[in-house]
C-alpha cells in the first residue's frame, strides 16, 4: 500500500526549522527564562523524531549523518571538562564564573561557564535520545 504523506512532509520541512530554532532559543535563554540545555536537547530530539515520522529512518539518517554515540561522548566530555576546568584555576571542582561582555551585534551579553556545561547536557540529551530511538526503531 502506498501511503500519502504529502501534507506532513511539506509541513515538516518548514516546522523542523522552527522547532530547531526554538530549541536553540530556549537553550540560550535558559539561564534567565524557562528553558535550558535539557529541554533544548529534548526539543531538538523531538524535531528529529518529527522528521523520522514524516519521512523514514533511512532518509533521516542520510540527511543527518551523525554518529550519535560520538555526540553523546563529546557532550559528556564538554560538561566534565567545564566542571574540571576550575581545578586549573585552583578553585574547587565545579566553580562557575561569569562576566558581561560587549559583543558585536548582540550588545551586552553575559557569558557564563554554566553555558558550556549546559552545551554538554544539550548534546548528551540529543545524542542519547536519538541513539535510543534510532536503535529501537531500526531494529526490525
Amino acid at each position: 500500500m502506498k501511503t500519502n504523506d504529502l501534507i506532513i512532509q511539506t509541513t515538516t520541512k518548514v516546522v523542523f526549522f522552527i522547532i530547531f530554532l526554538f530549541s536553540i532559543h530556549i537553550f540560550f535563554a535558559g539561564h534567565y527564562t524557562p528553558g535550558g540545555g535539557f529541554v533544548g536537547g529534548l526539543v531538538m530530539s523531538s524535531a528529529i523524531v518529527l522528521l523520522m515520522l514524516a519521512f523514514d529512518l533511512k532518509t533521516v539518517r542520510d540527511m543527518l549523518p551523525f554518529n550519535y554515540t560520538v555526540i553523546t561522548a563529546i557532550g559528556l566530555l564538554i560538561s566534565l571538562l567545564t566542571a574540571a576546568g576550575s581545578i586549573y584555576f585552583n578553585v574547587p571542582f565545579f566553580t562557575h564564573v561569569y562576566d558581561y561582555f560587549n559583543l558585536p551585534l548582540l550588545g551586552e551579553t553575559s557569558i557564563h561557564t554554566a553555558m558550556f556545561f549546559d552545551t554538554g547536557v544539550y548534546l548528551v540529551v540529543v545524542g542519547v535520545t536519538m541513539n535510543i530511538i534510532q536503535m529501537i526503531g531500526g531494529d526490525e
Binding site: 534567565y32 554515540t69 553575559s110
Partner: peptide
C-alpha cells in the same frame, strides 16, 4: 548570575547531580 532558578539549579547549585545524570544517561544508551 542567572534568572531562572530551575535551570541554575540544574547547571550550578546541583551541577554535580546533572553531571552524574548525563553520565548515567550515556551509560544507559
Amino acid at each position: 548570575g542567572g534568572g531562572n532558578i530551575v535551570n541554575v539549579i540544574l547547571v550550578d547549585y546541583r551541577g554535580f547531580d546533572t553531571l552524574f545524570e548525563i553520565s548515567v544517561l550515556t551509560i544507559a544508551s
